[in-house]
Design a binder for these strands. Structure first.
Length: 333
DNA sequence: AACGCGGGGAA
DNA sequence: TTCCCAGCGTT
């Protein structure tokens, strides 16, 4: 890390950097929500939900006083639903002591203070402080890791993020870390891409060891491949032309707190074609729809017309849309 | 340190 | 198909 590097970077950023709407605000709440939605999620995927979320919950208080159900309704389809639980819970904790201003006074404007709130880790804490101009930090995310590991041709297979974050935290204030962070994120998205990086267009290529050695794409070293097992589930579907019977899933675990048809895991796969396939991070889910002849226990009847008011996992939403279409088709016969 | 946790778009 | 995304919490 040297000063000429940041000069090259900021020069490139002033000409090619993206203008993202949320870089205009300095409201810590908005930035917190944005950063949380974008955890492990592409901007293109979170965009619409982000707009709806901030419209529906514009302040800490509005989020803290809303039912979790309402939060999950907005969040549905985005995945990693524990983020929504934690955001909601943290908003309640924050609201109870009087909001962000009271929090700063009470706990201080430090990453460590923010990290005591559920759902806020090393990255998000620094992003909130830096992007709301309460401090100057360089939050190290996947983008920054990719660039730095290439810059140094760093073979470290894991634990890179925390090491790089420590280095970034040790940089002097003169580094203008907020600007550098924006610049690194844009460079990583536009030039220093995971596959086929455009090193010829990169302002740092002469400083980049991996690029000089023609090995940019080999960094960061790939994580050890995790095999993705197949799991089989039965989905118990009961519905009429008017209603469908759903249960709320337990708060923890897969699809926590969302509404779903009752499901049980099957030890041995049935010798039939699955009705539903859904890939998750750590396993492939194959689903077999079992049509019940009566409402399954512990379920609630949800009118089809009100289904939009409930938070559902994406594949279940698709399944039920298809089911509703079946009812419509049979009625019009 | 490893794992659970979602979903979709790009290559 | 595989990869990976503005990560975090638990074990």
């Amino acid at each position: 890390m040297n000063p000429s590097l940041s000069k090259l970077l900021l020069g490139w950023y002033s000409e090619h950097g993206r203008t993202l709407p949320w870089r205009e605000t300095d409201d810590p709440y908005s930035i917190w929500v944005i950063e949380t939605l974008l955890q492990q999620t592409r901007i293109s995927q979170a965009g619409d939900i982000l707009k709806r979320f901030l419209l529906r919950f514009p302040t800490v208080e509005s989020l803290a006083t809303a039912p979790l159900e309402a939060v999950l309704q907005i969040w549905q389809g985005l995945g990693y639903y524990q983020r929504a639980h934690n955001l909601h819970r943290a908003a309640q904790l924050l609201h109870a002591i009087g909001g962000f201003d009271a929090f700063w006074k009470l706990k201080g404007q430090t990453p460590e203070a923010l990290m005591t709130l559920p759902g806020i880790g090393a990255y998000t804490a620094r992003a909130i402080l830096s992007f709301s101009r309460k401090g100057d930090f360089l939050p190290v995310d996947g983008n920054v890791v990719r660039i730095l590991s290439r810059l140094w041709a760093d073979p470290t297979p894991k634990n890179r993020r925390s090491i790089y974050q420590e280095k970034a935290d040790a940089l002097p204030l003169s580094w203008r870390k907020r600007e550098v962070a924006y610049a690194l994120m844009d460079l990583a998205q536009l030039i220093c891409t995971p596959k086929r990086p455009k090193c010829l267009l990169c302002p740092l290529s002469t400083e980049c060891r991996a690029s000089r050695e023609g090995q940019a794409e080999s960094f960061p070293p790939p994580a050890p491949r995790r095999n993705r097992p197949i799991r089989h589930y039965a989905f118990y579907l009961y519905s009429t032309a008017e209603k469908v019977w759903l249960e709320k899933r337990p708060a923890n675990g897969l699809w926590g707190g969302l509404w779903c048809v009752p499901m049980t895991s099957l030890e041995s796969p049935p010798q039939t074609v699955p009705d539903l396939q859904h890939d998750l991070t750590h396993f492939r889910l194959l689903g077999y729809v079992v049509r019940s002849t009566e409402p399954p226990p512990y379920t609630s009847a949800i009118p089809w017309a009100e289904l939009a008011l409930y938070g559902l996992p994406a594949p279940i939403r698709r399944l039920l849309m298809h089911e509703a279409e079946r009812h419509r088709a049979s009625l019009s016969l």
